[in-house]
Amino acid sequence: MEDMIVMDNVWKAYPNGVMALNGIDLSVGEGEFIYIVGPSGAGKSTFIKMIFRELKPTRGKIIVDHKNIATLRDRQVPYFRRKIGVVFQDFRLLPKLTVYENVAFALEVIEESPRVIKRRVMEVLDLVGLKHKVNSFPGQLSGGEQQRVSIARSICNRPPVLIADEPTGNLDPDTSWQIMDVFKRINEQGTTVVMATHNREIVNTIKHRVVALEDGMIVRDEEEGAYGYEA
């Protein structure tokens, strides 16, 4: 299996001096699905932000899809980000755009052709099961449906990597399972998925590799692991 993400002795200090990551070594294979778990403040979000270059490491190498993004030039960052799909706890949809427009927006701003946009948007909305809601606005959707729109948006450009920071954090248990179903489908298409989560039930039921962070260090890394913390 080829490596998709490699972290080599990665450190991150925030400008205020907080050490959020302390020497992370990790490699994630192409097509793998991993959970990042750990107590609040462990550094999960920081870890996620490093992968799509929202943050630069203070020290160390981060190789994504064979490129060291720690030394990536600012001008190159947008092109790199097109290879990474990102999903957040709070969906981040544009309230004045319809479901269709929200997804299409992501392709328009990277200057994809209208023909491709039309086909691709319907494809991903079909994948997340929202083809019948194309003309709804985010405010008219349930939380789970909004999150599915945001997932559709994140994968419409066919990124090889999908990262998600607590994607089920705002959702009730039933809805969370639907979201996981969508991730499963995306992962089955060959996309590497990295998901930071506090959801013990999901981690313990849908078995994948588990990487546990504490105080910015990897304390556990197991194939088919368990959540391992009390709720």
């Binding site: 001008r75 947008p78 092109y79 790199f80 980000r81 927006f105």
Partner: peptide, 16 residues
């Protein structure tokens, strides 16, 4: 601002 944030998230260039 929201819009710009999302644009940068999905890889729009600064000049765009």
């Amino acid at each position: 601002r929201r819009e710009i944030e999302i644009m940068k998230l999905v890889g729009a260039t600064n000049s765009f």
